[in-house]
């Protein structure tokens, strides 16, 4: 089965099963979350939708995502924690994160 049809099946099933998550989240699930982005969900909500004080990162422009990440990494942007997290990821990983979150709406 292709990744896409698999993901679509997951999404369709989610819709079928009804009101356990907002529709936006169910749709976002159709775009498969790469393993590297899984850790983000522990604070930034499902599919980067944001949660309480942790900002929304879904729909962040690709270049802006990378620029923001680099600013955290270089401690050039005020932060409590992202400045500690950002240096732990490689450029390739950051690019993958940027690709993923910029695809989400």
């Amino acid at each position: 089965m292709s990744l896409l049809s698999q993901a679509l099946r997951g999404g369709a099933l989610a819709l079928l099963l009804g009101a356990f998550a907002p529709v936006g989240a169910a749709q976002a699930e159709e775009i498969r979350t790469p393993m590297i982005a899984q850790g983000c969900a522990g604070c930034h909500g499902q599919s980067g939708a944001g949660m309480g004080a942790a900002p929304r990162i879904a729909g962040y422009g690709r270049d802006a995502f990378i620029a923001t990440w680099e600013a955290f990494r270089d401690d050039e942007r005020p932060a409590t924690i992202m400045n500690r997290i950002a240096p732990g990821y490689t450029d390739e990983e950051v690019a993958e994160l940027a690709d993923y979150f910029s695809q989400l709406r």
């Binding site: 522990g42 604070c43 930034h44 004080a53 409590t80």
Partner: peptide
């Protein structure tokens, strides 16, 4: 400021992680 933000982020963590477990 940092201490207050981190208390808020802790709440965001709790809600996010339990959503990632049970929703």
């Amino acid at each position: 400021h940092n201490r207050r933000r981190e208390a808020e982020y802790a709440d965001a963590w709790y809600d996010s992680i339990t959503t990632d477990m049970f929703s």
